[in-house]
């Protein structure tokens, strides 16, 4: 069994995005292996931005790849690129975990060195903050708050409107403006 797998992994294999999706839908192990090799680090970065704690993030990464594997048949290339679709799954799984009771409890019970990110107005940030979030926290307050709540904590626009007591339309425009500011900072 083990030797069979090694033989498969040995096959030199490159895929176009269409070929990769087709091979994944055919449940080919080598395609999954290729997918992992090419996207695990990027998706891990996305997850670590939301869950800085490495062991939990690693578990979430596994769950994300399992979910990608299980849901590949429902992937629609006309709606989004493969990476965007996987990025959405990674962010959704990570946020679902963050918003679960277990995560809230662990935050409450242990003084995590990574800091407490559940509150938007928490300005105390550790220096080893994973990349993207660090940049978000350099944005001006109103942009930082909506992105923190929307992107890192998964609150809907309506929830944010309730939380910080502003109209939903304002949340909408603030998110759009904030993300443009973020883009500017990243691209600078």
């Amino acid at each position: 069994m083990q030797s069979d797998r090694i033989i498969i992994l040995k096959e030199p294999q490159t895929y176009t995005e269409q070929e990769l999706i087709a091979a994944l839908k055919l449940r080919r192990e080598e395609a999954f292996s290729y997918l992992y090799d090419h996207y695990a680090a990027a998706l891990n970065g996305v997850i670590r931005n939301i869950i800085p704690e490495i062991h939990t993030a690693t578990d979430i990464l596994q769950d994300v790849f399992v979910k990608i594997w299980k849901q590949i048949d429902s992937y629609d290339s006309s709606r989004a690129g493969l990476y965007t679709w996987m990025f959405t799954i990674a962010r959704t799984v990570a946020i679902d975990y963050v918003r679960s009771r277990g995560w809230q409890n662990s935050l409450r019970n242990s003084a995590l060195t990574e800091g407490n990110h559940q509150l938007a107005d928490n300005n105390i940030l550790p220096s080893d903050e994973p990349g993207l979030r660090k940049i978000v926290h350099t944005l001006k307050e109103e942009h930082k708050t909506v992105l923190e709540l929307a992107y890192f904590q998964g609150y809907t626009q309506a929830e944010i409107a309730g939380l910080i007591n502003i109209p939903v339309n304002t949340v909408k425009t603030r998110i759009r403006a904030a993300i443009l500011q973020l883009k500017k900072k990243i691209n600078r």
């Binding site: 292996s33 992992y36 695990a40 680090a41 990027a42 399992v66 994973p130």
Partner: peptide, 20 residues
């Protein structure tokens, strides 16, 4: 995402291959 990528622990891939 590539710029902020973080390499996953090495054993994750094998764990996934075993799991699936």
């Amino acid at each position: 995402s590539g710029r902020y990528a973080i390499t996953a622990p090495g054993e994750v891939k094998m764990q996934l291959l075993n799991r699936l």
